[in-house]
Computed example of a mutant assay.
Amino acid sequence: MHFHRIKNSISTLTVSVLGATLGLAACASSAADPAQAELPKIEIQLEATRVIAEVANTDTSRQIGMMNRESLGKDDGMLFVFKRSETQCMWMKNTLIDLDVAFADESGKILNVAQMKAGTADIHCSKGNAKLALEMNLNWFARRGLGEGHVMRVPESTLQAQQ
Rank of each mutant, 00 (worst) to 15 (best):
N57K: 09
L132T: 00
K83C: 00
H2F: 09
L72V: 07
F80H: 07
A53E: 04
T60V: 12
M136F: 04
S126G: 05
A28S: 10
S29D: 12
G147I: 04
M78L: 11
I64P: 05
H150Y: 03
A102D: 11
L13T: 13
G128D: 09
L24D: 07
M152H: 02
N68P: 05
E54H: 13
H4L: 10
S30F: 10
G145H: 02
D75H: 12
C89I: 06
G73R: 10
M136P: 10
E86T: 14
R84M: 06
N112L: 07
K109V: 13
G149P: 04
A130Y: 10
S71L: 01
V81Y: 06
Q162A: 15
M92A: 08
G65N: 02
V101R: 11
E43F: 03
N112M: 02
D105V: 00
A130S: 12
F141S: 03
V151L: 09
S71N: 15
T95I: 11
N8T: 11
P155H: 08
G149R: 12
T14R: 07
N94R: 06
N137F: 06
N129K: 15
L72A: 01
V81F: 10
G147L: 02
A161H: 10
I6Q: 04
Q115Y: 02
Q36C: 09
V51P: 04
L13F: 11
V154R: 04
A118H: 10
G19R: 02
F141R: 03
A48G: 13
T60K: 15
D98V: 02
A25M: 08
I64K: 08
A56E: 05
G149V: 12
A53Y: 01
N139E: 08
L96M: 10
W140N: 08
K7C: 11
V17E: 00
V51T: 01
E148D: 09
D59K: 12
N137C: 01
E86S: 11
L72Y: 08
E148Q: 13
A161K: 02
I110Y: 04
S29M: 04
Q63A: 15
K83T: 09
E70W: 00
A56F: 08
A130L: 08
L13S: 14
M1I: 00
D122F: 02
R143N: 15
S126L: 12
